[in-house]
Amino acid sequence: MAKFESVEDYLNSLESPKHETLRAVIRAIETHFPEAEFKLAWNVPQVQIQGKYVFGMSAAKNHLSLAPWSEAVMADFAPRLAGYETTKGLIRIPVDWDVDQQLIADMISARMAELGI
């Protein structure tokens, strides 16, 4: 796997529709959390607010992954995530997902509350 220099490099390495879907996820986060910083960590895009990780994303061969960095948030959101494949720490979404901005915003808000920010 290539080592990326920036979130933009990461996104530009992806084929369509992965590129467009993750870009739409980022735009949704920017809309709800203008203070969010997008950084590359572990060679994939991560979101920090007040220096703390609140959300991450990555592309796999057949899906995209979204992660609120919290097993507790995943458990709390289990009813809303029932239509998705999940693990204790992430959600697998289709590469052409119709971005659920409110779900993302609510998960980040829950993670922020958990962190006290």
Rank of each mutant, 00 (worst) to 15 (best):
L90V: 09
K61Y: 03
M112W: 00
H19K: 15
W42G: 13
M74W: 01
E20Y: 03
V95L: 09
A41G: 12
D98S: 14
Y84S: 09
G116T: 00
E37K: 15
R80P: 01
I108C: 14
A113D: 14
D100W: 04
H63F: 12
M107I: 10
I49M: 10
Y10Q: 04
A72V: 08
P17Y: 05
H19C: 12
Q101C: 10
I26V: 13
I91E: 07
L14H: 02
R111I: 01
A105D: 08
R92E: 10
T86R: 02
A110R: 03
Y10I: 09
D9Y: 00
I117P: 02
L81N: 02
R23Y: 06
L14T: 07
A24D: 10
E85L: 12
L103W: 00
A41M: 11
V54H: 01
F33P: 08
M107W: 01
K52V: 01
A113Q: 14
A82N: 05
I49G: 12
S65N: 14
L90Q: 12
A36L: 05
L90C: 11
S16P: 07
S65I: 05
P34Y: 01
D76W: 00
W69Q: 10
E37S: 14
L66S: 08
S109K: 12
I117H: 06
E5V: 09
S16A: 15
P34L: 00
Q101A: 14
D106R: 02
T87E: 06
E20A: 15
Y84Q: 06
M57K: 03
S109F: 00
P68D: 11
H19R: 15
W42K: 05
A28M: 03
F55V: 01
E35A: 15
L90H: 08
E8V: 06
Q48A: 12
L22W: 02
E8G: 03
A82S: 15
L90D: 08
Y84N: 05
E85N: 13
M74R: 02
R111Y: 02
K88T: 09
R23N: 13
Y53L: 13
T31Q: 13
R80Q: 15
P17E: 09
N43A: 07
Q101I: 02
P68G: 07
S70R: 00
P17L: 06
F38Y: 05
F77A: 12
N12C: 08
I93N: 01
L81G: 07
H63K: 11
V73Y: 00
V95M: 11
G56D: 09
A36H: 02
A60Q: 14
E37L: 09
Q46C: 13
W69H: 14
E30V: 07
K18V: 03
M57L: 14
